[in-house]
Amino acid sequence: MIPFILRRLIQIIPVIIGVTLATFLLTWLIPGDPTNVLLGPDASEEARERLRRSLGLDRSMAAQYLIYMSNLLSGDLGQSLSFSRPVADVLVSRMANTALLAFAAIVLASVAGVAAGTWAALRPGSLHDRGLTIVVLFLNSMPSFWLGLVLILIFGLQLRLLPVSGMAPSGAGLLSLAAHMILPTITLAAWSLASIARMTRAAVLEVINNDFIRTARSRGLSEWRIVLFHVLPNAIPAVLTVIGMQMGFLFSGAVLTETVFSWPGVGLAMFQAIAIRDIPLIQGGILMLALIFVLINLIVDVLYVYFNPKIKLN
């Protein structure tokens, strides 16, 4: 197991380098003089010149990338225009809020998705199976921000049951935090829930037709025990891959959800950055979320092997 983890760690190094290269190249996409965008239109020519030199804009692409990387490794992601603070500071201070939302959403999506998918697969073609298919279709065809707006409309504005904006004020207690989290969590989880339910249904269907399930039944084991200890452990690896993918999407999907609910996370900061073309912040946010995505997928790979003893570690 340990050598496998090490090997995977080594394998992601080129991917991480590629990710930094791609984010670096975003600056190169900026039309015209990048300092115009990076510093804002009001910056002095002096400041521009300083930035040009520090980014190596007068030098070769490779040199620019090396400068970018060395800044990156020392934790320097540039200066945010919209927040007038270092990008790294802004992102780090908001990461916890985004992570909180993403984790709540993945827990909700996984638990509800696996349960719904399994339930449907146990009786294929039944009423609730067909119902799930339709719900999955709609959840997968719905922009999350629209779902968020509809939830706000129903639970916040009409029924006045739940807060619709922001995070709980500091010191308001866990209950208030939880109340503020409910709608954003559901909104963020919806798409993933549908994907996980769909994958679970397919995986369970595949497992349940295996001979060993019949063996388990022929030995007098109860149905729930068979589902819990024989079906799910064999269906989980496939589901886990989807959950890992979704986890990464949830961190980035936060851009939309946080915007709708004014949730003070990385995503909201990036939305605010878009309006004034605060490229360094967007660049830093993308890099950070992409690295998290890579890391999560690594963890999922390891778990996949752990849950699936049949895979030979080579």
Binding site: N210, D211, F212, R214, T215, P233, N234, N308, P309, K310
Partner: peptide, 11 residues
């Protein structure tokens, strides 16, 4: 059952 490989839970 006939095929012991598929008749045993692989996990």
């Amino acid at each position: 059952s006939q095929d012991a490989l598929s008749a045993l839970n692989p996990a």
